[in-house]
Design a protein around this nucleic acid. Structure first.
Length: 927
RNA sequence: GCCGAAGUGGUGGAACGGUAGACACGCGGCGCUUAGGACGCCGUGCCUCAGGGUGUGCGGGUUCGAAUCCCGCCUUCGGCACCA
C-alpha cells in the first residue's frame, strides 16, 4: 500500500531509534540500580544523604484489559517530579506495587475456573511490561502486591492491632484492649468485645444479593445500588465485622486543616463525615414513664415543635403503639386502619420491603400516628407521635422533633397531615408559604422561666441548650453522618481474617506465629449469588464451604482446642489502607515497617506537622473511600505507637483524566473511533464512518466505546519519550483533557529538534561545539532555566515544555550548537524525556547517567534585560511601544511616552489629566 | 434542591490587575524535491483594501487599565441529597 521509505538517515530520531535508545537505557538503569533509594536501616540500608522525598502513585489494580493512554498520566507526572528532585540531590523514594485483590479477578475465576491468583499474576506481568516501557524511575526492589503472603501477613497483623484495641474517649486516642481489661477489671468477652475497634455487630447493612455480598456505605451509590455492577442494595440486619471509624470522626475532620490537600477533597471528606452540632432533647411520653430522645441542630426552634416522628424501625415504636385511636382522631393519621397496631404493622411492612432505590424515588411524605403523645419540655404542650420513613434510623437518635415552621420536610408532612405550624423565627421581609430557614430573631418562644424571643439563632440555641441541661431535659451534642466501616465480605478473593471463634462464639485473634492465614483451595470460586431483588436470603461466603479449613484444632496457649475460622474475607480496601508504609521497608520480616525507616520517610518534619508521604498523586475518585480508610488505619497505628506520622499523605494532588471522543452510528452503535473521518466545512464539523454520518460524544476511554488508544501503540509509533512529553504538554496536570493522537507528533518534533541540534543524522556523531554563547542566547538560556525551574516546582509541566521548545527553536534558528547551551537543555529535558536525554548526555561525553547530575541553575547576571518593551496606553488602549533601558526612571519614561508620535496623535491635543508610570514596562495616560 | 470547580481562536491550551491568544495541533503560503514525505522559513482570533475597529459564556460594577477582582444570570462538569 505505501511506497518504501527511501532510506532515512541512519541516525534520525525516528520511533525505531527512540525504541532502541529507550530499551538500552531501561536495561542499563536496571543493571546499575540507578533508582534504588537507600534506607537508614535494614536490608536496604545505605548512605542517606540529601533531603528525603517520598512520592507515590495511587495503587493500580492489575486489570486484564491492560492499559490505555489515560492510565499512565499520573505515573509519568510522579516520575518527572521524582527525577527532577533526584537531580537536585534528594533521596527519592518512588516505587509501584499492585492492589491485587478484587472483584474482576474473582469474576474471571468464576467464568473460567482458573485460580484468581493465576490470572492476577498474568495481568501484573503484562502491566509491568507496559509500564517498564515508559521508563519509570522506580526502585524495583520496593514493588509488591497485596496478595503476596508477606504483605498479607502484615495486613492481617494490622487487623489484629485494631481488633486488640479500643478508643479511649477521654484520652482521645486508641489504646490496647489489655488496658481496658485492667481498667474495667473484667475480661468477659461480652463486655470487652463491644469496645474493640474491630468488632462484630448485628445491625442494618447494605446487602447486595446479586453480588452475594454486603457492601460498605462508601460502596453504595446515591441511587442505592452497588458501585460495582449497579445492582440493587437492600438494608438487612446481619452479623458483620465493622471498624469503629466513627471514633475518629473528629480527628479525621480536624486534621484535614493540617494537610496540603485539594480543598475539594477536604470538603468531600468533611461532607461525608457530616459533623453537625446540636442538641439531644428528651420528650416525655404522655401517660407513661418512657421518654423519646430526639436530635436537632435547631434547639432554638423547640417552641415550634408540633409533633414528633420516629423512624419506622425505632425500638420505642412497639411500646408507643396505643391500644386504640384517641377520640376524634384525624382520619388521615390512621392510614385507614382500625387500630394503631394495625396501622403501624402495615406501615412497617411496607417500609421494610422498599429498597433504597424505591425510597429515593418516592419522596412523598407518608406516615402513621402511633396513638401516643409526647410532651414538649419547654412549654408542656402535648404533641402527637408519628412514625414516618422520612426519618432515618441510623442518623442521630432515629427520632426527630418536627418543626414545620423552619423545616421543609416537616412543613410538607404537616401540610399533608393537617398538623399545626408555629413560626419561631421572624424573617426580615415577611413569611411566604414555606418553611423559613434563614436568620432572624426568635418569636413565639417564651414559656415559664424560658424566654428567647428576640434572640438570634446562635444565642437562642445556646440559651435553650443551657435551659435543657439545667432542667435535665437534654444537652448539647454532636452527631455524624459517618457510620462505622463494614469490613467483611462474602467473597473468596480477599485477605482471610486472622480470627478464630471459640466454642462460645467469641472471636480470638491468632498469634503472630500463625500469620499469614492463607486462602485455602476451594472447589469453585462462585460466591452464592441471588436474584438481584431477593432481599431475604442470607449471604454465604465461599470459604464456609471448606470445612477442613474452617474447623481447626489449635493450641492458643491453653492447650489444644477446637476452633472455627472466620469465613468472611476483608474488603479490597484493606491492602491499600496501609501500603504506603510498606514501600518504606518492603522486605522487613520482623515488623510491618522498621520505626527508623518509617520516621525517615514519613515522619513529621517539625512540630505540628502530620508527617506522611510528601506527595501522593491519583484520581479524585478515591476522595472518600480509600483516602478515608487509609487515614483511619494510619491514625490507629499512630495511637498504638507503631508510627511517628499522624497521617499517611501529607500532600495530595488529583490529576485530571484523559478523555476521548466516541462515535455512534444512526442505530446508536459505537463505531471504531480511529476510522472516523472528520469533515470541516467552515464552522461546521461533521463526522463519518464508512461513508455514513456518525455523531460524536465525549467521555471516558473504554473497550465498549471503541475509542481505546494504548500506550503500546504510542511506543511503536513515536517512542516512550514522545508519549511522555505529549501527555505532560497537553495541559495542567489537574485538568481533564481529550486525547488527540494526531497532536502527538508535536512532541516528537520537539525531541527531533533537540536531537538534530546535537547529532549528525547521517553519522551519529556529536555536533556540539565549544563556542562561547552570544549575549542573546545566554539571556534566552538563563531565562529559560529560571522559568522551567519555577514551572517544575509548581508542577506546571505544560508550560515548562513550552519554554524548552522556545529555547530549542531559538538555538535552531540561531544555529547555536555550543555545549554551554546544549548541556543545560539536555539536563532540563531529562525528567520529561529521560531516555533521549541520557543518550544525548552520553554523546556530550559523559560516562555517568544524568539521573543525579545537578539540574541547571540560572545565573542572575544573565537574567538582566538589555532593553524592555514599554507599552504606552491612552485611555487603556495600547497606542505605542518603546524600547527602553530596564533601569529607566519614571520621569524619563513619561517624557519619552508623551513624545511618542502615535501617542501624541491619540491624545489629539486633549488635556493630559493623569499619567500612571510603571517603569520600565508601562505608561498609562488619561485624557 | 444544597455545596464545589470551570467557561479564552477550528482544537489542546498561555497570560504577578498591565501588549489577550505563549507553546503545540490543524490549516495556508514559500523554499528544497520529478513527486510525496521529511525538513526549513513565513503566515494564521474575528471584521476591514487600508487606517483601524472588535474580541476571553451573558449583563452590570470597581479601576487609568479586568480573561483575572466584586454583584447578578446562563451553561457544563463533579460531590452530596428526606442527615433533622
Amino acid at each position: 500500500m505505501s511506497t518504501p521509505e527511501p532510506s532515512p538517515s541512519a541516525y534520525r530520531y525516528s520511533s525505531d531509534l527512540a525504541g532502541d535508545i529507550e530499551r538500552r537505557w531501561q536495561d542499563r538503569w536496571e543493571a546499575e540500580g540507578t533508582f534504588e533509594a537507600p534506607n537508614p536501616t535494614g536490608d536496604l540500608a545505605g548512605d542517606v544523604t540529601g533531603e528525603k522525598f517520598f512520592i507515590m502513585d495511587m495503587f493500580p489494580y492489575p486489570s486484564g484489559a491492560g492499559l490505555h493512554v489515560g492510565h499512565p498520566l499520573g505515573y509519568i507526572a510522579t516520575d518527572v517530579i521524582g527525577r527532577y528532585r533526584r537531580m537536585q540531590g534528594d533521596n527519592v523514594l518512588h516505587a509501584l506495587g499492585y492492589d491485587a485483590f478484587g472483584l474482576p479477578a474473582e469474576i474471571h475465576a468464576v467464568q473460567t475456573g482458573e485460580h484468581p491468583r493465576t490470572n492476577t499474576e498474568a495481568n501484573m506481568v503484562n502491566m509491568r511490561r507496559q509500564l517498564r516501557r515508559l521508563g519509570l524511575a522506580h526502585d524495583p526492589r520496593r514493588s509488591f502486591a497485596t496478595i503476596d503472603p508477606e504483605f498479607m501477613r502484615w495486613t492481617q497483623w494490622i487487623f489484629i492491632q485494631i481488633f486488640e484495641s479500643w478508643y479511649d474517649v477521654e484520652a482521645g486516642r486508641a489504646r490496647p484492649i489489655s488496658e481496658l481489661i485492667e481498667k474495667l477489671g473484667t475480661s468477659d468477652p461480652h463486655v470487652i468485645d463491644q469496645h474493640r475497634l474491630a468488632y462484630i455487630d448485628e445491625s442494618p447493612v447494605n446487602w447486595c444479593p446479586a453480588l452475594g455480598t454486603v457492601l460498605s456505605n462508601e460502596e453504595v451509590t446515591p441511587e442505592g445500588r452497588s458501585e460495582r455492577g449497579n445492582f440493587p442494595v437492600f438494608p438487612r440486619n446481619l452479623r458483620q465485622w465493622k471498624m469503629r471509624i466513627t471514633a475518629y470522626a473528629d480527628r479525621l475532620i480536624d486534621d484535614l486543616d493540617r494537610m496540603d490537600w485539594p480543598e475539594s477533597v477536604k470538603l468531600m471528606q468533611r461532607n461525608w463525615i457530616g459533623r453537625s452540632h446540636g442538641a439531644e432533647v428528651s420528650f416525655a411520653v404522655a401517660g407513661s414513664g418512657s421518654r423519646i430522645d430526639v436530635f436537632t441542630t435547631r434547639p432554638d426552634t423547640l417552641f415550634g415543635a408540633t409533633y414528633v416522628v420516629l423512624a419506622p424501625e425505632h425500638e420505642l415504636v412497639a411500646s408507643l403503639t396505643a391500644d386504640a385511636w384517641p377520640e376524634g382522631v384525624t382520619p388521615s393519621w390512621t392510614g385507614g386502619a382500625a387500630t394503631p397496631a394495625e396501622a403501624i404493622a402495615g406501615y412497617r411492612a411496607a417500609a421494610a420491603s422498599k429498597s433504597d432505590v424505591e425510597r429515593q424515588e418516592n419522596r412523598d411524605k407518608t406516615g402513621v400516628f402511633t396513638g401516643s403523645y409526647a410532651v414538649n419540655p419547654v412549654n408542656g404542650e402535648s404533641i402527637p407521635v408519628f412514625i414516618a420513613d422520612y426519618v432515618l434510623t441510623g442518623y442521630g437518635t432515629g427520632a426527630i422533633m418536627a418543626v414545620p415552621g423552619q423545616d421543609d420536610r416537616d412543613w410538607e408532612f404537616a401540610e399533608k397531615f393537617d398538623l399545626p405550624i408555629i413560626r419561631t423565627v421572624q424573617p426580615s421581609d415577611g413569611f411566604d408559604g414555606d418553611a423559613y430557614k434563614g436568620e432572624g430573631p426568635a418569636i413565639n418562644s417564651s414559656h415559664g422561666d424560658l424566654d428567647i424571643n428576640g434572640l438570634g439563632i446562635a444565642e437562642a440555641k445556646a440559651a435553650v441548650i443551657a435551659w435543657l441541661e439545667q432542667h435535665g431535659a437534654g444537652h448539647g451534642t454532636t452527631t455524624y453522618r459517618l457510620r462505622d466501616w463494614l469490613f467483611s465480605r462474602q467473597r473468596y478473593w480477599g485477605e482471610p481474617f486472622p480470627i478464630v471463634f471459640d466454642e462460645d462464639g467469641s472471636p480470638i485473634a491468632l498469634p503472630d506465629s500463625m500469620l499469614p492465614v492463607q486462602l485455602p483451595e476451594v472447589p469453585d470460586y462462585l460466591p452464592k449469588t441471588f436474584e438481584p431483588d431477593d432481599a431475604e436470603s442470607e449471604p454465604e461466603p465461599p470459604l464456609a464451604r471448606v470445612p477442613d479449613w474452617v474447623n481447626v484444632e489449635l493450641d492458643l496457649g491453653d492447650g489444644l482446642k477446637k476452633y472455627r475460622r472466620e469465613t468472611n474475607t476483608m474488603p479490597n480496601w484493606a491492602g491499600s489502607s496501609w501500603y504506603e508504609l510498606r514501600y518504606a521497608d518492603p522486605h522487613n520480616t520482623e515488623a510491618m515497617v522498621d520505626p527508623a525507616n518509617e520516621a525517615y520517610w514519613l515522619g513529621p518534619r517539625q512540630a505540628g506537622d502530620t508527617g506522611g508521604v510528601d506527595l501522593y498523586i491519583g484520581g479524585v475518585e478515591h476522595a472518600v473511600l480509600h483516602l478515608l480508610y487509609a487515614r483511619f488505619w494510619h491514625k490507629v497505628l499512630f495511637d498504638l505507637g507503631h508510627l511517628s506520622s499522624e497521617e499517611p499523605f501529607r500532600r495530595l494532588f488529583n490529576q485530571g483524566y484523559i478523555q476521548a471522543y466516541a462515535y455512534t452510528d444512526s442505530r446508536g452503535v459505537y463505531v471504531p473511533a480511529e476510522d472516523v473521518i472528520e469533515h470541516v466545512d467552515g464552522s461546521d464539523t461533521t463526522y463519518t464512518y464508512d461513508g455514513k454520518p456518525v455523531s460524536r460524544e465525549y467521555g471516558k476511554m473504554g473497550k465498549s466505546l471503541k475509542n481505546i488508544v494504548t500506550p503500546d501503540e504510542m511506543y511503536d509509533a513515536y517512542g516512550a519519550d514522545t508519549f511522555r512529553v505529549y501527555e505532560m504538554s497537553m495541559g495542567p496536570l489537574d485538568v481533564s483533557r481529550p486525547w488527540e493522537t494526531r497532536a502527538v507528533v508535536g512532541a516528537q518534533r520537539f525531541l527531533q529538534r533537540v536531537w538534530r541540534l546535537l547529532v549528525d543524522e547521517d553519522s551519529g556523531e556529536s555536533l556540539a561545539s565549544d563556542d562561547a554563547l552570544d549575549a542573546e542566547t545566554l539571556h534566552v538560556l538563563h531565562r529559560t532555566i529560571e522559568g522551567v525551574r519555577a514551572d517544575m516546582d509548581e508542577m506546571r509541566f505544560n508550560t515548562a515544555i513550552a519554554k524548552l521548545i522556545e529555547l530549542t527553536n531559538h538555538l535552531t534558528k540561531a544555529g547555536v550548537r555550543s555545549r554551554d547551551a546544549l548541556e543545560p537543555l539536555v539536563l532540563m529535558t531529562a525528567p520529561l524525556a529521560p531516555h533521549v536525554a541520557e543518550e544525548l548526555w552520553a554523546k556530550l561525553g559523559h560516562a555517568e547517567s544524568l539521573a543525579r547530575a545537578p539540574y541547571p541553575v540560572a545565573d542572575p547576571a544573565h537574567l538582566v534585560e538589555q532593553s524592555v518593551t514599554c507599552v504606552v496606553q491612552v485611555l487603556g488602549k495600547v497606542r505605542g511601544k518603546l524600547e527602553v533601558s530596564p533601569d529607566i526612571s519614571d520621569e524619563e519614561l513619561q517624557a519619552l511616552a508623551l513624545a511618542e508620535p502615535n501617542v501624541v496623535k491619540s491624545i489629539d491635543g486633549r488635556e493630559v489629566r493623569k499619567v500612571i508610570v510603571r517603569a520600565p514596562k508601562l505608561v498609562s495616560i488619561v485624557v
